[in-house]
Design a protein around this nucleic acid. Structure first.
Lengths: 121, 121
DNA sequence: AGCGTTAGTTCCAGATTCCCGAACTATCGG
DNA sequence: CCGATAGTTCGGGAATCTGGAACTAACGCT
C-alpha cells in the first residue's frame, strides 16, 4: 500500500487531465469533490447517476484523478479524504477546468450525473 | 470506403472531444487544422514534432477527430480536405476548446508540437 | 489483546481498445 | 490502360480497462 503519489503542479500534463476527465464517471466524481470542497472516497460515492461502481473500479478512478493532478488524497484514519486541486490547476491552465465542467453541464447526461454549470463561484 | 460520417453538433459529446484531444498527436493535428483554417490530410501532416506517424495511424486519428465532431472532412479529388468545426463547438461548449489549446500551449511538449496560445482570434 | 466491521488497495483474468505494417481502393495524369 | 499518389481497411500483437475476490489497515468494542 504505497503512500499516495501526487504530481507537483509543474509536472501536471494536459493530456493526463483530458484523459482523466474523458470518462463521464470520473468527471462526475471530480465535479462532486470540487463542489463539496472535500469528499471522503468510495463509500460516499458508490454510485454515479444511477450506475453502481464497484469498489475496485472506484479505487482505480481515484488513482487516475490523483495521478493526473486533479485531486489530492490524504488518509484520515480508515478513510481517504479527497480535495480538488482546482486552484492550482486553474492558475497553471486558466480556463481549462471551467470549460470542461461547463461542457458536461451543458449535456443531459452530464446533468443526470450531477455536473452543474459554474458561472464563476 | 464509407462516406465520412460527421455527428450533428447537438450529438457532439464532451467525453468524445476530451478523449480525442487527450492524445498529444491528435491535439497537435487539430491545432494545425484550426490555425490553417483548412489542411489537406495525411501527406501534409506526416509528422508531429519530430515523430513520424504511419499513414494508417494518421487515418485513424482523423477518424477519431471527425467522429468526435472536431473536424469536418470532405473528399476533394484524391485527397481529403479537413476543416475545424471550432465555431460550432465554441457556440455549443463555450471556453472548452480555448482552455484545452491554451493548456497544451502552456507546456514545453505542446510547443514542440506546434501548439500555440490563442488569446482570442 | 483479540474480534468484527468498515474503508480501500492489490491481484488477476477476460474484454476492449490501440497501434502500425501490409494489402486494398479510389482518383488523377499521361 | 498504366503508374503514381492519397487514403482506408484488415489483422494481430501490445497495452489498457473492468470488476470480482482476496488482502491490508484502522477503529470500536468487550
Amino acid at each position: 500500500m504505497r503512500p499516495l503519489i501526487h504530481p507537483a503542479i509543474d509536472d501536471v500534463r494536459p493530456e493526463a487531465i483530458l484523459h482523466a476527465l474523458s470518462d463521464p464517471a470520473r468527471a462526475a466524481i471530480f465535479a462532486r469533490i470540487m463542489r463539496a470542497g472535500c469528499v471522503e472516497a468510495c463509500s460516499a460515492l458508490a454510485a454515479v447517476g444511477d450506475r453502481v461502481i464497484p469498489k475496485s473500479s472506484l479505487s482505480n478512478h481515484f488513482k487516475i484523478l490523483r495521478e493526473a493532478g486533479l485531486i489530492r488524497s490524504e488518509r484520515a484514519g480508515v478513510e481517504v479524504r479527497n480535495h480538488s486541486r482546482w486552484d492550482e490547476i486553474e492558475a497553471r491552465f486558466p480556463g481549462l477546468l471551467p470549460g470542461i465542467i461547463n461542457a458536461y453541464a451543458a449535456t443531459p447526461a452530464g446533468n443526470a450525473d450531477g455536473i452543474a454549470a459554474l458561472d464563476d463561484d
